[in-house]
């Protein structure tokens, strides 16, 4: 198993898409955190009481992660579908015929890399954003209520999306299809679930991954449409369990 993990790590780091995707994620999260913090600080005096009440020093500066989650999802999708697209997958399964183990090694490597990268970016975006807010004394610290959970939760969420992408990639085996489904799940699920919901009910919409992200990353202001952090974590873990089980089921039963 250590050999398979080493091999998956070599595969992931030896293609250009991996550093490229992480670089895009880094630029979008940190730059957007600074830009949003600055514009909030400069507009603060003109805001009414409602806008001020809804301002969340962490959540409001983490919008860049909505873009970055796409990059993370793509990283996960490509880690699998690039093998199918190029045909490398036949070499993979000839070298390691126990496919469940290969999947486990791949998801472990994708999950670990994106969790580390996600947490690094979450903390970097947090500190960059708070520095820009400090001029107006709008900033918050890691010791304040919910803040550490929000920062850790944001890193965890993008890693979840990456593993989700890899699992969907394993089921669909095509880059375009898997990217479309992953993106759709992230951006269209809230709209679709809302259409099926009774007026004002959040029972369904709380199951959209994007809404779970909001539940994980709020600190001072909590919109009633968002789930609690605990429920959001449950949603993430459920998505992981279901898609990974589907991936394992498909992989071990299909011809390569």
């Amino acid at each position: 198993m250590t050999g398979l993990i080493a091999a998956e790590w070599t595969k992931l780091r030896s293609v250009r898409s991996t550093p490229l995707v992480l670089a895009v994620a880094a630029v979008s999260t940190i730059v957007i955190a600074v830009v949003q913090a600055r514009s909030a600080a400069s507009a603060w005096d003109s805001w009414g009481p409602r806008a001020r009440a809804e301002f969340d020093p962490v959540f409001s500066t983490f919008s860049g992660f909505q873009l970055a989650q796409l990059a993370f999802g793509l990283l996960g999708v490509l880690a699998v579908t690039a093998e199918y697209g190029t045909g490398t997958v036949r070499a993979t399964f000839a070298a390691a015929p126990r496919r469940g183990r290969v999947l486990a090694a791949k998801l472990l490597v994708v999950g670990t890399l994106t969790l580390v990268a996600g947490e690094v970016l979450a903390f970097a975006a947090f500190f960059a954003g708070q520095m820009a807010l400090a001029g107006k004394h709008l900033d918050t610290g890691l010791g304040d209520p919910n803040v550490l959970r929000a920062v850790l939760g944001q890193g965890f969420y993008v890693a979840t999306v990456a593993v989700l992408g890899a699992a969907i990639g394993t089921v669909l085996r095509h880059t375009a299809g898997a990217t479309a489904l992953t993106t759709g799940l992230l951006f269209l699920a809230p709209t679709v679930l809302k259409a099926f919901s009774a007026n004002g009910s959040t029972a369904l919409t709380h199951w959209a991954p994007g809404v779970a992200a909001e539940g994980l990353t709020w600190t001072r202001f909590h919109d009633p449409e968002w789930p609690t952090a605990g429920f959001a974590l449950l949603v993430c873990l459920t998505y992981l369990a279901v898609t990974v089980a589907a991936a394992a089921w498909c992989l071990t039963r299909r011809d390569v």
């Binding site: 190029t86 045909g87 490398t88 070298a95």
Partner: peptide, 23 residues
């Protein structure tokens, strides 16, 4: 099997390296 079934963005040495690591 198929000589073209390699990832074009990977260096030849890295391709052989991951194969070696699996076994």
């Amino acid at each position: 099997l198929d000589a073209n079934a390699v990832h074009g963005g990977r260096r030849a040495r890295d391709h052989l390296r991951w194969l070696a690591e699996t076994n």
